[in-house]
Amino acid sequence: MSPAPGGSCTGGATRALPDRLVTLCVTALSRRGEATVSTRSASTVELVDAVRSGMCDLAVVEHPALTEGLDAGPVVKLRRWLVVPADHRSARSDRPRLPMLSDLTFAAPPRAGNPASFDAVQDLLRERGLDVDTTPAVDDRAVLAAVAAGTHFGVSTSPPGAVPGVAWLDWAPSALALRVRIVRRADADVGVHVDALDRVLFKERVR
């Protein structure tokens, strides 16, 4: 099941990717001459299953993740920020520290969507002195809504913008970065598509 020029390509994008990057990826695939590029947005576990089963030709998934049986490209780091309520004391601090968020709940993607990356973020927060409860927020929209309500913080790959009630914190950009990889089946003839996505991710990586 290989996408032929002028045919179709189904790509998967983890919900953790920002909208802008998803559209950049779709644009890059379209320029490869595909008549139809369709995109599936889902959790990493769902996308890995979709690529294995042939429902997707390739996908950008979180790292770390279980990708056994698939070819996985190099790890690329993408910028990710802490998002907090705009009126929270951490938003007014020149040097915000993670323990300042201890009065908030962490709005995080459901653990079942990729236990490995969920646990990695949890361990990072705990290592840096923050151990709080979590509530599931399936995507960036849900995270921002929970944050705007004043009771939660979250992590987001959406760059700082004019979102009422939400402030972005520039904290530990390398440690907090979202790690992603492109996965494909070993027998899938999608090399040119992988190269196109790889160039997009490379340009957007944390330097």
Partner: peptide, 8 residues
């Protein structure tokens, strides 16, 4: 159990 632990 293995999937929940993030391992094969």
């Amino acid at each position: 159990v293995f999937a929940d632990a993030g391992c094969t």
